[in-house]
Design a protein around this nucleic acid. Sequence first.
DNA 1: AAACGCCGCAACCGCCGAGGT
DNA 2: AACCTCGGCGGTTGCGGCGTT
Length: 342
Amino acid sequence: MGRAPCCDKNGLKKGPWTPEEDNKLISYIQLHGPGNWRALPKNAGLQRCGKSCRLRWTNYLRPDIKRGRFSFEEEETIIQLHSIMGNKWSSIAARLPGRTDNEIKNYWNTHIRKRLLRNGIDPVTHSPRLDLLDLSSILGSALCNPSLLNLSSLLGNHAILNPELLRLATILSSLKQENTEMFLQNLQDNQLLSSLVQNQFPLSQVSQFQNPVEEATSAPFLSPTQLMQTDLGGLSCLNSLENSVPSSLSDCLVSQPNSVSCNTNPPIPDKLVENSGLQPITNGCQNYSIESVLSTPLSSPAPLNSSSTFVNSSSPEDERESYCSSLFKFEIPESLNMDDFL
DNA sequence: AAACGCCGCAACCGCCGAGGT
DNA sequence: AACCTCGGCGGTTGCGGCGTT
């Protein structure tokens, strides 16, 4: 573990710390307290540079450090704070008692970041990744069965909705009577979708908040937790849909009685279906009910450790994976003026 | 059993800002 | 204003453990 000594400047030792060195450092700090790191190694009888001592203390030896696996709550907090602060690990660590910035950084890079990527979420922007996003299939499916679009229930929902998505839903709804073909063409061109995705979680909205509490309570769009729940990557989405969304998308996906074939909807590759554990749908069209998708109340994100979220999970990692169970969750600002979208 | 490759994480590196002179 | 010192931070490295072949 740790980096091997690359040099030995000034006779100072580098590399992994020995228990003896740890004991010396702990004993000295217990007597004199931390600080004055330049002079500390000499006074403590350590052949280390002050910086190395400080890092060893702050990242490993400090008595208040909590070691062990990150809890769901901690992980949720990290994701939320990262979406606000970016790679400000020390700021994030300040809000996670017992965790160091280094530990959080490592955990982010080795666990959370990978999972976000798997789920089709850009870990930097916390936005769905365009290269994996296949909203066109979702919307195309909706177009195949416009009855699935129920705006009235949407408008009666107290959740908060991303205006761009609401606009999209409105357009789709209007297409019940109008020119479906034209819209399908637009979908194929993907211009609308690109615009949608790029505008969905602009970073500028993140930076305008003075603190995470303010941001968490006033942000009009998806919270980071919801973003984790927003799974657009396909594979894990399908898996989680089958396992844990009994009332919404998975129902539409598997058991929708009036499924309609749709040529514009690219079928799920067999391999994906196979890996996801999802039963192949022979007509090649999944029907997503926007009504059901939009029905989740969202004044506060569901806790990560909500037991109802985890079904058929075999490991904590799987549990967190299945946490991305809802394809979309929306929030509708009370001030939203529907006229803007109609 | 051995070889190989991947992953996790402690530790290092370089940069930056604050504070003192 | 310029310089220096110190501490803090984020990014990166690479060893050791573990799983896979």
